[in-house]
Design a protein around this nucleic acid. Structure first.
Length: 304
DNA sequence: CCAGGTCAAGGGAGT
DNA sequence: ACTCCCTTGACCTGG
């Protein structure tokens, strides 16, 4: 069982700016407009170089599961990676990252943002979504990562528009418009609101139609059960993965740590022993303190 | 260095 | 109609 965390190594991120290691260098629109795509290219190269440092840190700290940031290429919707000024060096660094991950058995994944709406019937929104997803696939291809759900690109369906069944059908139709680079890696995650998609919904509306595996988020399930329990939902999700080890997401409510916060907001750390019903899964921990939350969990629950 | 205000995208929920 | 939140806070400006 792997345990991973998302996008940021706080230990390396919370350093003075000139020593900081991060893959999240970005910029506001005004800066992108004034400094242009070559500046974005510079930022992307720095981000990719730091990805390598983060992977090394992971291997030195017994982490074999990591979610890469979608911010590695700022304003990626506005250009093709292969047209960037620093493309050759970027490609070379990314290949090194991918090779390192494989040599050290680190599972890498992506979780593109909430603006991806593969269920949209609006051509412009769909076009933006496909562009973003293809960028994620291209990065993984450049890294030489497998075109399997081991290196998943995980998204939510993205909307219901008042009719889940109908929206999910649009999602399935649009899935066909993606390249193999994305199709082979795409997974869907259950939502944290009853009006959206439960794990059970995803099974019948997505998996049974197009074979896209389900990432079961244990925390989200509490807000959108689909009328079934945690164990049943997890088993349904896990049945969709074939030979690849399934991923489940885990987090706890921020209300455990702070007052006047939303029930479904994520906590800094996690406290309870994660119940996996003896299933073989990899766990992506979504807690604000990132790697520190996993380290604390290991100390509390896994050390002997 | 720091604090405070601001920031692409789409949908949903709360006000 | 407006604001906040979501995968992941980070950027920018003025002091």
């Amino acid at each position: 069982m792997r345990m991973g965390y998302a996008c940021i190594v706080t230990e390396l991120n919370d350093l003075p700016k000139n020593q900081r290691v991060t893959t999240n260098r970005s910029m506001i629109k005004k800066t992108f407009t004034s400094k242009g795509v070559d500046y974005a290219s510079e930022m992307a190269l720095l981000n990719c170089r730091d990805l390598m440092k983060i992977l090394i840190w992971n291997s030195q700290n017994q982490f074999d599961f990591f979610r890469m940031s979608s911010n590695m290429f700022p304003w990626a919707s506005e250009y093709n990676i292969s047209d960037l000024k620093h493309f050759e060096e970027i490609a070379s660094v990314l290949k090194e990252c991918g090779d390192f991950a494989k040599d050290n058995d680190i599972r890498l994944s992506f979780h593109p943002g909430p603006f991806n709406k593969l269920c949209s019937s609006d051509e412009r929104i769909l076009k933006n979504t496909i562009k973003d997803l293809e960028t994620h696939g291209e990065i993984m291809d450049l890294m030489g990562l497998s075109r399997t759900h081991f290196n998943k690109i995980n998204i939510h369906v993205g909307g219901a528009y008042g009719d889940r069944q109908k929206a999910s059908e649009v999602f399935c139709r649009n899935f066909d418009k993606l390249s193999d680079s994305v199709k082979s890696r795409l997974t869907v995650e259950n939502d944290d609101r009853a009006s959206l998609y439960s794990t059970k919904d995803l099974f019948s509306m997505i998996y049974e139609k197009i074979g896209v595996p389900i990432v079961h988020d244990i925390h989200h399930h509490g807000f959108c059960t689909g009328g079934i329990g945690q164990e049943e939902a997890m088993k349904i999700a896990i049945s969709t993965w074939g030979k690849i080890t399934p991923v489940v997401h885990y987090s706890e409510s921020r209300t455990k740590e702070y007052e006047n916060v939303k029930e479904n907001a994520h906590s800094d750390y996690i406290y309870e022993k994660i119940e996996c019903f003896d299933l073989d899964v990899d766990i992506m921990v979504e807690a604000k303190k990132k790697e520190k939350a996993v380290q604390k969990y290991r100390k509390d629950h896994l050390s002997s």
